[in-house]
């Protein structure tokens, strides 16, 4: 190896200043290092491990056997016949993915329909009231999801609040079964993630310049047109952010369908957890976790590209 002496680069700054800058950069890297190490070792490395696991064979009692196999990915769509080893199309998993996707889309839409007027109303309050509203929406945002799901369960059970009231009023004789249905799961998801929609919408609507609204009215726009042509376009970044914040956790929801779906209305999250529990198929669970993550990353990527590409026009 020819260790040639490279001439020192011509310093563009006085050398003591350049030295101070490299020292500052080194110090800043060092300050960031502990956090990066913790997330790197205990957050990123585990993801690489399940990537490896997804290409291995399942151990008989959970865990993995270290033989290369693409079975986990093949099993996503096909099922091997026990007798002939012939692969047949088995859409059971695909259907769970489809169901989760539909649930996530429906939840996002309902959250948007409920959340947009709420956020708009909040943004048009006087400042003191506004703070109170924000606090009221923030509290459920940070409250225990398991407990909140339990609260929904108490409301919609056969002997829960809704049925008791309806039966007390004599509207119905028998309780309406709501728990362990698609409706229950959707209601639970809506309830869980509504604050995730309202808060970013509010952040965006709060900055709305009402002179634009006034100008539109001056030009004889109807309320409907003002809403669609002025308010909605101005709050688009908030709408996109809110939809993403609801869609992503809903797609991977685990607790809500587990409690309100009663094990019969599974979503992707439950499917993945099941493979690591009673299903004892870690490679299959790993491959499904990675597919879910890929979907989420694509959604985030599209979002980032759209938001960074959209520069405000003067």
């Amino acid at each position: 190896m020819a260790a040639t002496d490279t001439p020192p680069p011509a310093p563009s700054l006085p050398s003591f200043e350049a030295e101070a800058q490299t020292r500052a950069a080194r110090r800043n890297r060092l300050l960031t290092l502990p956090a990066l190490l913790i997330i790197g070792i205990f957050g990123v490395l585990p993801l690489l491990i399940i990537l490896v696991y997804s290409f291995l064979e399942a151990g008989p009692y959970g865990g993995v056997v270290w033989n290369f196999s693409t079975e986990a990915y093949v099993n996503f769509l096909f099922q091997a016949d026990i007798f002939s080893d012939k692969l047949t199309f088995a859409p059971a998993y695909l259907l769970i993915y489809l169901r989760s996707f539909l649930f996530a889309v429906a939840t996002t839409l309902v959250c948007l329909i409920l959340g947009f007027p709420t956020a708009y109303f909040m943004a048009t309050r006087p400042p003191r009231q506004r703070n109170l509203w924000v606090l009221l929406i923030t509290i459920p945002f940070w409250s225990n999801l398991l407990v909140r799901t339990l609260a929904i369960m108490f409301i919609i059970r056969d002997e829960g609040l809704i049925n008791s009231i309806l039966m007390g009023m004599g509207v119905i004789d028998h309780p309406i079964t709501m728990l362990y249905t698609n409706f229950a799961v959707l209601l639970g998801l809506l309830y869980a993630f509504l604050p995730f929609m309202v808060l970013p919408l509010y952040a965006s609507l709060e900055k709305l310049d009402f002179r634009l609204v006034e100008a539109a009215y001056d030009l004889y726009a109807t309320r409907w047109r003002v809403l669609w042509r002025v308010i909605v376009p101005a709050s688009l970044p908030g709408i996109v952010a809110g939809c993403l914040l609801v869609f992503i956790p809903t797609l991977g929801a685990y607790v809500t369908p587990l409690i309100l779906g009663g094990g019969t209305h599974l979503m992707i999250g439950d499917l993945i957890a099941q493979q690591f529990g009673s299903g004892r198929n870690w490679p299959l669970g790993s491959s499904q976790a990675l597919i879910l993550m890929a979907v989420v990353l694509i959604a985030l990527f599209v979002y980032v590209r759209n938001t960074t590409g959209r520069t405000p026009h003067g």
Binding site: P46, G252, I268, A289
Partner: peptide, 15 residues
């Protein structure tokens, strides 16, 4: 914040 919680859960379990 970006990785779905259930994915983090099974990855950490595997780790």
């Amino acid at each position: 914040l970006m990785v779905p919680e259930i994915v983090t859960a099974v990855a950490t379990l595997s780790f």
